[in-house]
């Protein structure tokens, strides 16, 4: 199968310092690709470039063969690219249900006049979004709190809420930035299951995650960054044995985890 997301020679510099430098890799539909690397390796910066928040200073991003480099985020969303954020970007004043409902924005076709006058078209899309959003909340087991404000929820719940919102776009490719950070073992297992399930439905997934156990278990392919450069890529087992990777990042402790996960 050919690549859905194709990244070639991507890089960006802030004030002369190259935060990401000449990174290339590809993600196929239904495949889970993880980007790992020590803190400050440029993982989130990479995500911000792919999702159109930062303008790369070199290289290209292609989606389905089409050049999408530095395209406006809302247009990328239209092309089926969706993401979550490392530090949560939720709408605290809105209910959980509404948070996921806005994820349906592209299908709602918001027009201000029909919305002001509550014409039937407007009310119909609100109802449809609410039904879909409730189903998604059920999927991440948050339906009980559907009418509570997001700001009142626990961190783990918000992590899942953000995934539900990202899924509401019905993406073709989903970028998850540390979805399991700050989650306990049970929550992590749930997120693990959810990601696998989404990938199985044909969605390409690009993952940044520090939980090595999770990464090794669910990734088909791993890209390792260090100081903004790609130092290795390959299947989890391959990457885990790469001496450069071990030196730069995993260390003895990481290797233990990997072996543990393989068992």
């Amino acid at each position: 199968m050919s690549a859905l997301l194709d990244i070639s020679d991507l890089g960006i510099a802030f004030g002369g310092i190259k935060a990401v430098d000449g990174v290339s890799f590809a993600v196929r539909p239904g495949e889970i690709v993880s980007v790992i690397g020590p803190n400050g390796a440029g993982k989130t910066t990479l995500f911000n470039m792919i999702s159109g928040l930062y303008r790369p200073s070199q290289g290209q991003v292609r989606l389905d063969g089409r050049d999408i480099t530095a395209m406006e985020p809302h247009l990328l969303a239209r092309l089926g690219l969706s993401r979550t954020f490392q530090n949560l970007q939720l709408f605290g004043d809105m209910t959980l249900l509404e948070n996921v409902m806005v994820g349906h924005h592209l299908r709602e076709r918001a027009h201000v006049l029909p919305d002001l006058f509550a014409l039937s078209s407007s009310r119909r899309s609100t109802r449809a979004s609410a039904d879909n959003a409730l189903a998604l909340l059920r999927r991440v087991r948050l339906d009980k709190g559907a009418y509570r404000e997001a700001r009142a929820m626990s961190y783990g719940a918000l992590k899942r809420l953000e995934i539900a919102r990202a899924l509401a776009l019905e993406p073709r490719i989903l970028l998850l930035d540390e979805p399991a950070a700050g989650c306990n073992a049970v929550e992590t297992a749930e997120i693990d299951e959810l990601i696998a399930e989404v990938a199985a439905s044909g969605v390409a997934i690009l993952l940044v995650e520090h939980d090595m156990k999770l990464v090794m278990k669910i990734s088909a392919h791993i890209v390792v960054l260090d100081h903004g450069r790609k130092i290795a890529e390959g299947a989890p087992a391959e990457v885990a044995r790469d001496p450069q990777v071990i030196a730069a990042y995993l260390g003895q402790h990481g290797q233990d985890q990997v072996l543990h996960a393989e068992r």
Partner: peptide
């Protein structure tokens, strides 16, 4: 309404609002 939710969303986080389309 869809517009109202979009407005409240961009109020909460402009970045997130953009990435959801």
């Amino acid at each position: 309404s869809p517009t109202g939710r979009a407005l409240r969303a961009l109020h909460g986080s402009e970045v997130a609002a953009r990435t959801i389309g």
